[in-house]
């Protein structure tokens, strides 16, 4: 009972604390509109060749450029905000959460509360980003698209935590700004990389989820279910690493 009470209290108060992070709230309001809506507004409606998977084979289909931008800019936006949320969470918690251990919180209670807060923030970020996207673009298979968005955004939230453990706030901010841009917006963007990406590009967190998003956003059949599984596996590995780093960093017992 005490354990549940501690976890629930730390989770509830943690949510309230992050809701008062005005930088995060401002990003949540400003970024989806400026990244996603503006991308649709300024992109010329011309047909472009897009690399995707059809019946298990990598192939090229013709799609409108705004649609492709929608598929790419939406995960960039959510990954960026989720990554910053993870960064802020780790930077702010790593000193003070150690005091929670001294007053009696167990490691699992603090970890459950902190990762729970990150999960809720990521859900909100994905909901807002997809909601803004839906104004201009409807994915062919919405729920598979959302599933891939969740996998990618949570992964980036956890990467933000790892970056927060290793770098200061400013350096972390730059890393979390640049990483989703070059990963999702360059290496995985089928407009930029029209053939199969190089092996090292596939190591980035965006590779598998973006394959799913391009597939389910622009075609009517799901041909990339395995990629969703690989993306979930990537998320699991990053998650375990984040838990370990958090545990080490905050010295909870």
């Amino acid at each position: 009972m005490v354990s549940v009470n501690r976890t629930a209290t730390a989770f509830g108060i943690g949510l309230r604390e992050h809701a008062r992070n005005y930088v995060l709230v401002a990003l949540l309001v400003v970024l989806p509109v400026s990244f996603i809506t503006l991308a649709f507004a300024v992109t010329q409606d011309v047909q472009m060749p897009v690399r995707t998977v059809v019946d298990g084979e990598t192939t090229t289909v013709m799609r409108g450029m705004p649609e492709v931008h929608g598929v790419i800019m939406t995960p960039i936006t959510s990954s960026f905000i989720a990554g910053l949320a993870g960064l802020f969470l780790m930077r702010e918690a790593r000193d003070t959460d150690g005091r929670l251990a001294v007053v009696g919180y167990r490691a699992r209670q603090v970890i459950a509360a902190r990762f729970g807060v990150l999960a809720v923030i990521t859900l909100v970020v994905v909901a807002v980003s997809v909601g803004v996207m839906l104004i201009d673009f409807q994915p062919e298979q919405l729920w598979w698209f959302v599933a891939a968005m969740l996998v990618l955004s949570v992964t980036y939230g956890l990467i933000g935590m790892l970056v927060g453990a290793a770098f200061n706030r400013l350096a972390g901010l730059w890393i979390m700004l640049i990483l989703p841009m070059i990963d999702i917006g360059l290496f995985q963007d089928p407009l930029f990389v029209q053939s199969e990406p190089e092996w090292w590009m596939k190591l980035f967190p965006g590779y598998h989820p973006v394959r799913v998003m391009v597939d389910t956003g622009l075609t009517t059949d799901l041909d990339t279910a395995a990629s969703l599984g690989w993306g979930a596996g990537y998320l699991l590995v990053v998650g375990l690493l984040a838990v370990w780093v958090y545990y080490r960093g905050t010295r909870t017992t």
Partner: peptide, 12 residues
């Protein structure tokens, strides 16, 4: 007040 609640819960 929230600070007291958070740490008080830790103390049980």
């Amino acid at each position: 007040s929230e600070t007291f609640r958070l740490f008080g819960a830790g103390y049980g």
